[in-house]
Amino acid sequence: MDLTLSFEEKSFILTDNTHKQEWTGTYSLEKIDNSSSKLGLTFENLEEPVTGVYGTRVYSDDSESATITLQTDENILSFVGEDS
């Protein structure tokens, strides 16, 4: 699956680039510690919010990437940040 997750202000767009679909909604962010936050996504067409974690992934070469991991009943989705 080719998915893109993008954020603006307090809203988000989740795009399925493979099937040309989009889902939108609002999000909340709650700081857990210095390197991670709890992420709550409320989709416009779903009753239950999706919970995830936003944090920093550190690699063996000491490089870092912002990451988001979301868990639904059916899937675990992992997104690695890109510079815009």
Rank of each mutant, 00 (worst) to 15 (best):
L46S: 14
T4L: 11
T51G: 02
T56H: 09
T56N: 10
T4P: 02
I68T: 04
L14F: 00
S35N: 15
S63C: 06
S37V: 03
F43N: 00
Y59L: 15
A66E: 13
V50Y: 00
T56E: 13
I13M: 10
L46G: 04
S11K: 00
V53R: 02
Y59W: 13
L3M: 07
Q21K: 15
D61A: 09
T42G: 02
E47Q: 07
S63A: 13
T51P: 04
V58M: 09
Y54F: 14
I68S: 03
E9T: 09
I32Q: 05
E9Q: 13
D16R: 09
P49M: 01
E48Y: 10
L14Q: 01
S37Q: 07
T51N: 04
T15V: 12
Y27L: 04
L14K: 03
E22N: 14
S60P: 10
S36M: 11
F12A: 02
T67M: 11
K31D: 14
D16G: 13
G55Q: 04
E44V: 03
T69L: 12
S6R: 11
T24L: 08
L5Q: 04
T56G: 06
S36C: 11
T18R: 14
Q21Y: 15
T42K: 04
R57N: 12
W23T: 04
T67H: 09
S28H: 09
L41W: 03
E47H: 07
G25T: 02
T24S: 12
L5P: 03
S11V: 02
T24C: 11
K20D: 15
L41P: 03
S6D: 13
W23I: 05
S6F: 07
N34P: 13
G55H: 06
K20F: 15
E48T: 10
V58F: 05
S63I: 09
F12P: 01
Y54V: 05
R57E: 14
T26F: 00
D16P: 05
S28E: 15
P49F: 00
F7R: 02
G55V: 08
V50K: 01
G55R: 05
K10C: 07
S65H: 05
T15L: 11
K31F: 07
Y59V: 14
K31N: 11
E64W: 04
S63P: 05
E64K: 13
E8W: 09
S37R: 03
Q21H: 15
E30S: 08
L14I: 01
E30L: 10
E48L: 11
Y54W: 13
G52H: 02
V50S: 00
N45W: 04
G55I: 10
S35M: 15
W23Y: 06
T56V: 14
S11D: 06
I13C: 12
S65Y: 03
T69N: 04
L3H: 06
P49Y: 01
E48A: 10
Y59I: 11
S60V: 15
D61L: 09
N17H: 13
D62N: 12
Y59H: 14
T4N: 06
K38H: 07
G52M: 02
Q21F: 15
E44K: 00
D33A: 05
S36E: 13
I32N: 05
S63E: 08
R57Q: 11
K20V: 15
T24V: 13
D61W: 09
T67F: 08
D62L: 09
T69P: 05
N17K: 14
E48V: 07
F12K: 02
E47D: 10
K38I: 05
V50Q: 01
E22K: 11
T69D: 11
S36A: 12
G25R: 01
L3R: 06
G55N: 08
